[in-house]
Nucleic acid binder design. Structure first.
Length: 405
RNA sequence: GCUGGGGUAGUGAAGCGGUCAAACACAUCUGACUGUAAAUCAGACGGCUCAGCCUUCGGGGGUUCGAAUCCCUCCCCCAGCACCA
């Protein structure tokens, strides 16, 4: 499959300045893709963007990945209703390091260039910025941009000059990379379309050359119609400290049938033949969840590691399958303890629920028992007994657990 | 600064002197049905030493046998006006 065909099939194209996508198939491109570092970890929303880069890399194109140290210090006004508070340099430096670490991990096995735009902004003075960059931007076109209109128009939240200038910085990033690396293509999220155009315009005005952009669509959860990757508990992070490997795996395993094939296309590098086969299987026997299992395995392997997925899968067997906790080895118990809350024996069920955070108060714990929502090693708990056997598995509902060892 | 309207449990929102731990909706949790799904139905949803008691209705003070409900005061939000520009 050619790159252009693959991009279309995987659903990676939202908007592009390329007249014909097949231009991607006939020559080698150097592209850049910027990642926001306003948070200390990337999310699975950003992961979709990384997958797009991986597809390009696999087709032999050259990647420049940019962790936006400078741009994150300014703050992207796009899609925000209000001015955001500035973050300290120290925080951003840490976030950039995190972003770079995660990008390197996801792209492991591929060659690419990692850059940080603070490197070229740090030494730039304000006069140079205004004269060399600012001069190329007309106020009337800037002011017409939707996100700016929304903010400075009637009922808008207002906007500082700082955020207003953001698009110039991003525009210059592209120009800089064009000059230094011959980069002529930007890949970006759908919300970055306007900013990317700034770069293209800047390159055209300064070098009379045509650069291009491809934006990927925002991944939408078809079942809820909302942005994908936000669970009730918040975003799904790539950092295992923020979203444990177990929770991460579970998130993918619980994807609804409607969306699972789309997500396989975006979040795994499986071939069309493999994904088509899974689609058939899922339609024939949805309760087996073959597609979900593959998705969960592949994504967790990519973002964490093969060893960690296998681990988590074994844990899953104990929690949801029929394997008793007692059947686990010492090492496996330690792994399990890392994924779910763990307490010691000799306490009552109510107290244990409280310690494990499965109930917020004793009243709630008591209620759960009365409702039949608690089971110990597969047996429904009917009154508040003391737990003495170790290891034991205390279960609240179907999805919450506590290990007693 | 003035005038008017507000601040009630996770959210929205009733209540306007006792029957208020506070209607209702949503969110959440549990159970049933299932596929660790969705939908649907049922229950729960401040705390505790749990047929009882304790702490809550922006903060503090007061009136009253009794206050989320009345009065005083302070803080905060919204709308309009004024001041400023």
């Amino acid at each position: 499959m050619t790159l252009s065909e693959e991009l279309r099939w995987r659903g990676f194209i939202n908007q592009t300045t390329l007249e014909n996508l097949t231009e991607l198939d006939t020559k080698e491109w150097t592209f850049y893709h910027g990642f926001d570092a306003s948070s200390d970890s990337q999310t699975i929303g950003n992961l979709a963007a990384m997958m797009l880069d991986l597809v390009f890399l696999r087709h032999g194109h050259k990647a420049i990945l940019l962790a936006g140290g400078a741009t994150s210090l300014i703050g992207d006004p796009g899609g925000k209703d209000e001015e955001r508070p500035l973050q300290s340099e120290e925080t951003i430096r840490y976030n950039v390091a995190q972003a770079e670490k995660q990008l390197r991990h996801i792209m492991r096995g591929h060659d690419f260039t990692m850059v940080n735009n603070i490197d070229w902004y740090q030494s730039m003075n304000v006069i140079a910025f205004l004269r060399d960059i600012g001069k190329h931007f007309g106020m009337s076109t800037l002011v017409q941009r939707d996100y700016i209109q929304k903010r400075i128009g009637e009922g808008g939240g207002g906007m500082s000059f700082t955020e207003f200038s953001y698009t110039l910085l991003q525009g210059y990033d592209f120009l800089h990379l064009f000059n230094k690396y011959g980069c002529t293509l930007q890949l970006a999220g759908a919300d970055q379309w306007g900013n990317s155009l700034s770069g293209i315009e800047l390159i055209r005005k300064t070098h009379a050359q045509q650069a291009h952009v491809i934006t990927l669509p925002l991944v939408i959860n078809k079942a809820t119609g909302k942005k994908f990757g936000k669970s009730e508990a918040g975003a799904i992070w790539l950092d295992e400290v923020k979203t444990s490997v177990y929770k991460f795996y579970q998130f993918w395993l619980n994807i609804d049938d409607e969306g699972v094939i789309d997500y396989l296309k975006i979040y795994t590098l499986l071939s069309k033949a493999d994904i088509d086969a899974l689609e058939v299987k899922t339609q024939a026997a949805p309760q087996k969840r073959a597609a979900q299992k593959t998705l969960a395995y592949e994504v967790t392997k990519l973002v964490h590691s093969e060893e960690r997925v296998n681990n988590v899968m074994k844990v899953t067997e104990v929690l949801f399958g029929n394997q008793p906790v007692a059947s686990l080895s010492k090492q496996e118990l330690t792994d399990l303890a890392a994924e779910i809350p763990t307490t010691h024996s000799g306490e009552s069920v109510v107290k244990t629920l409280l310690m494990a955070g499965l109930a917020g108060s004793m009243s709630e714990a008591g209620r759960l028992i009365k409702n039949g929502g608690i089971s110990l090693n597969g047996q429904k708990v009917t009154n508040d007994e003391v737990i003495n056997t170790t290891p034991s598995l205390l279960k609240k509902g179907k999805n919450s657990f506590c290990l007693i060892r």
